[in-house]
Lab assay of single mutants.
Amino acid sequence: DHDVVPEDKFQETLHLKEKEGCPQAFHALLSWLLTQDSTAILDFWRVLFKDYNLERYGRLQPILDSFPKDVDLSQPRKGRKPPAVPKALVPPPRLPTKRKASEEARAAAPAALTPRGTASPGSQLKAKPPKKPESSAEQQRLPLGNGIQTMSASVQRAVAMSSGDVPGARGAVEGILIQQVFESGGSKKCIQVGGEFYTPSKFEDSGSGKNKARSSSGPKPLVRAKGAQGAAPGGGEARLGQQGSVPAPLALPSDPQLHQKNEDECAVCRDGGELICCDGCPRAFHLACLSPPLREIPSGTWRCSSCLQATVQEVQPRAEEPRPQEPPVETPLPPGLRSAGEEVRGPPGEPLAGMDTTLVYKHLPAPPSAAPLPGLDSSALHPLLCVGPEGQQNLAPGARCGVCGDGTDVLRCTHCAAAFHWRCHFPAGTSRPGTGLRCRSCSGDVTPAPVEGVLAPSPARLAPGPAKDDTASHEPALHRDDLESLLSEHTFDGILQWAIQSMARPAAPFPS
């Protein structure tokens, strides 16, 4: 592969990997390779389809078979030569091979799209000592099968071997295949498990690692696999990028399955594409389908809103127990993405979901129960707010008499603000006073009005108090039968009158 990737590009890729991570280095090298001529790309395919690569990765054979028959990708048995050289000459001794072996032994695996480039050397060096003999053996194999790289107009793939297949390693990572398949204008990513390549439709969760975000852009890794992070704060999961590491605690105790298979379609829109997988259930989501939507993949363990709600429900009964003089119970939860139609709101002032922060849900004790107040519409209280300059209440639009249902020339009671006709409430011909108009209920007259088809109010509507207090003497005590009587009149003013009279009014101040 030294004929494909020059030394300066190799060093530039290593520097970019240390600065921005393996995914960015892979993407940059792939983009550079696509700008080369067809001879360089053909050399790339020839390096990929060597015999030892085909033996190690069985899924490469179907890719090789898909090439046109007129494309010669065979390799000479006596060494490598550029395709432009007409004579089959043995190339001179390859010093770059020693360079590659020494550099890969030092860096474990470079971040390139060629056999030198995919593992994360920093994480491997940190986690190597417990498994040094086995990992050293794996390093000797890295130059042979560490990076199976493929690129063409139909298929483009980048393979990364790992030393996680050490025997006896619980939940060992089998390997990473960062794979971009450009077929019919689409893009897919796969993962390699035990020599087999699994596409998103049959993606397997190998051991402790999972394909957290099938994305090839942005600074985030394709698999949430930063070796420096180790395990999740809650004892979460091992990262795919942690090559040759000792077994780590796999999943939280509440995880239903340690080796679950995540779905390959969004649980909201039932469509495929780039998904984020939940650590607590097999569901996966688009970032845009979450509520609120996320802009980037959160670091650490992530769970959907259903799993978060289940966790909150487990903690909430203990938080609601009476604990005198104790601060509110704080339950730190990872930043969760909410699927459509589901929402768990945190306290005000918290950062938005999706940031690399930890939301704190506070379970406050329930407030003391209070008697429910009568629910009145805002339009129902409008007549009470229509007060004239002299303190006389004006008529609201649409006000109707509670007896006849007519809204023409209605009066407004100064005591309960109900609309009424003087002739309907006082049919006996009582003279109307000039000021202080009161309806039949507030004036103490319980004589029913002779209106055909309208039920008369119940005599129990009024329960006047002592006459010594004029204001308190007109406080009506309405009961269920009074409400039914008012409802039978089918008037809004009657219902409003009952609601206003049912509310307690402050006692009249004593004259000074």
Rank of each mutant, 00 (worst) to 15 (best):
T430F: 02
V246A: 15
P282Q: 11
V360L: 13
C413A: 02
R412Q: 08
G375Y: 11
C439I: 02
H425P: 02
L275K: 02
A340R: 06
G465S: 05
D356P: 09
L294K: 05
A419E: 15
Q393H: 12
N394K: 08
C266H: 04
H415P: 02
A428K: 12
V312Y: 10
V246N: 05
A417F: 13
P372H: 10
P457K: 12
L364A: 09
P293A: 06
P292A: 12
D470E: 07
H474A: 09
V268Y: 12
T447V: 15
P347L: 08
H490G: 15
A472T: 00
V387L: 06
P351Q: 10
W302R: 14
S291K: 04
T430G: 10
G241L: 10
P293W: 11
R323C: 11
G405V: 11
S378A: 10
G272F: 04
V387K: 05
C404L: 03
P324M: 14
L478C: 03
P322L: 11
A460C: 12
F492C: 02
L487Q: 03
Q325L: 12
L381E: 11
F492H: 01
T408L: 12
A251G: 10
H474C: 07
L337Q: 03
L308S: 07
V344G: 12
K261G: 06
V446P: 09
Q392A: 03
E263Q: 11
A463D: 03
P372F: 10
G494R: 03
S306V: 10
L376E: 08
E350T: 15
V446E: 14
H415F: 08
P448F: 12
D406W: 13
G391K: 10
C278T: 10
A319C: 11
A248P: 08
S299Q: 05
V315E: 09
V403Q: 08
P389D: 15
H363W: 13
I297K: 05
P433M: 06
A499P: 01
P317E: 10
E390H: 13
E330N: 11
D377N: 12
G434P: 11
V410T: 09
S305C: 11
L250D: 10
K468Y: 08
P464H: 08
P328E: 09
A460I: 10
G244M: 10
L294W: 15
A288M: 15
E326Q: 09
W302E: 14
P511G: 14
M503H: 10
G241F: 08
P459V: 11
P365I: 13
A399P: 04
C281F: 09
D469I: 10
I276D: 09
G388D: 15
F492A: 04
K362S: 05
A396H: 15
P351K: 09
H474N: 13
V315I: 11
Q501T: 15
N394V: 11
A419H: 07
Q392T: 09
S305L: 10
S245I: 10
